[in-house]
Simulated scan of single mutants.
Amino acid sequence: MTARPKEPIAYRLAPWIAAALALFVVARVLGPVVEDSDASAVHGAPRTLRLGAAASLSDVMEEAVARWNEATGDEVEVVTGASSTLARQIQNGAPYDVFVSANAAWMETLVAERLAGAADVSVIAENRLVVITRLARGEALGDRAQPFDRSLFTDAFPKARWALGDPAHVPAGMYAKEALVALGAWEALEPRVVPASDVRAALRLVERGEVEFGIVYRTDAAQSARVTVVADVPSDQHTKAGVLVGRIRDSQPGAELLLAWLRGPTVRALLESRGFGVDDL
């Protein structure tokens, strides 16, 4: 079994620094905005902010943004995709104001390239990986929960195809590969892996029956009525699947308010309601 990867920098930030920053922004800036019934009087003319969000966050971010728009009068355009794709767009000059990533390494790359400030980045949630199959196949398996061991990928289903987010760059696929390598199953499984452009694309492959199994986030599996969970992927076998939010350099006025909103209790409750872990971050 391989050693657990080193934790990203964001997990090692002093908690009181993040708390102090959030309290300052909310108390001094966001509070007057959300309490004023005429948001445009505070902000000036309404503006459109641009939020890039990992595909696994699309549902919760759309709901969070709808509440933000209602509270402030500002519009936020949500663009979803693989964290890697969005990060590369930012590197190439795409005009995002805030980025929500499902991978710490991509966020740290932006910080290292001075495209985002370290003080403006924080972990707001965590996710878990699960093995899924189409509902009909799951019913055939009955109540027999499958252990996450090498036999699941070799002996039990030796010819089954597996959908993963592309392990070359999609966070969910990268984490899945780490767990499979640690298990000693990656070499046998790799020829049967169907790489997808993002984790939601991997989910759709399983839903449509184009592959027999997949590894996706628990939150993605929960929102589908056409798949069932076969096994849980132990979280100590891969890098933490953290959800990070950060403000992009040269962002528009108002981006710091949106950042504070995404770090705050409303979005935290939304994340928790969708199955994300929000405790002990």
Results as ranks from 00 to 15, higher is better:
V267H: 04
V79A: 12
S251A: 15
L110I: 10
V216Y: 00
L110S: 07
Q146E: 14
V278S: 06
L271Y: 08
E108V: 08
I124Q: 00
V60F: 04
S58E: 15
P15G: 08
V211E: 10
G242Y: 01
L262K: 05
Y217H: 15
G184W: 01
A163P: 05
A168Q: 13
A168K: 12
M174S: 09
G277I: 11
V65P: 04
V130E: 04
L86Y: 06
G209C: 11
A160R: 05
A140P: 01
L57N: 08
A163M: 02
V65F: 06
E272G: 11
Q252D: 11
R247L: 09
R247Y: 00
G138Y: 03
D120L: 01
P195L: 03
A176Q: 03
L152N: 03
F276A: 06
A160P: 05
L152F: 02
E256S: 14
A163D: 05
A255L: 07
A222G: 03
K6Y: 08
P8H: 11
Q91F: 13
A140W: 13
L164G: 05
R218L: 13
L270D: 07
L86S: 03
P5Y: 08
V211P: 01
P32E: 07
E139S: 12
L183Q: 08
S40V: 08
L49K: 03
G184T: 03
L205F: 13
L49P: 07
F24M: 10
R137L: 14
L129I: 10
P95L: 05
A54E: 10
R88Y: 13
A125D: 01
D280E: 15
R137H: 13
Q89A: 15
P191M: 06
E187M: 07
W186I: 00
D220W: 02
R47D: 12
P253W: 09
D155W: 11
R128V: 12
L129H: 09
A201T: 11
G173C: 05
V233H: 00
P8A: 09
G254V: 02
D232M: 06
P234K: 00
S235C: 10
L23W: 15
D149L: 04
D166R: 02
Y96K: 02
D97T: 05
V25H: 04
L270Y: 06
R226F: 11
E63F: 12
G142V: 04
G44R: 06
A41P: 06
F276V: 06
V79E: 13
P167N: 03
W68T: 02
E212C: 09
V230F: 04
A136E: 15
V60N: 02
M107P: 01
P95C: 07
T228K: 02
Q237K: 11
L203A: 07
V123Y: 00
Q237T: 12
L271N: 07
G254H: 02
Q89G: 13
P234E: 03
T2K: 09
L183F: 10
D59Q: 14
F148S: 00
E207H: 09
A260N: 01
A145R: 14
Y217I: 06
V230S: 05
A201E: 12
A185N: 00
R226I: 06
P15V: 00
T85Y: 14
A202K: 06
L13K: 12
P191H: 08
P167I: 07
A231F: 02
V34W: 04
A119F: 00
G246R: 00
P253L: 09
S197M: 12
P32A: 07
T85M: 12
W68L: 02
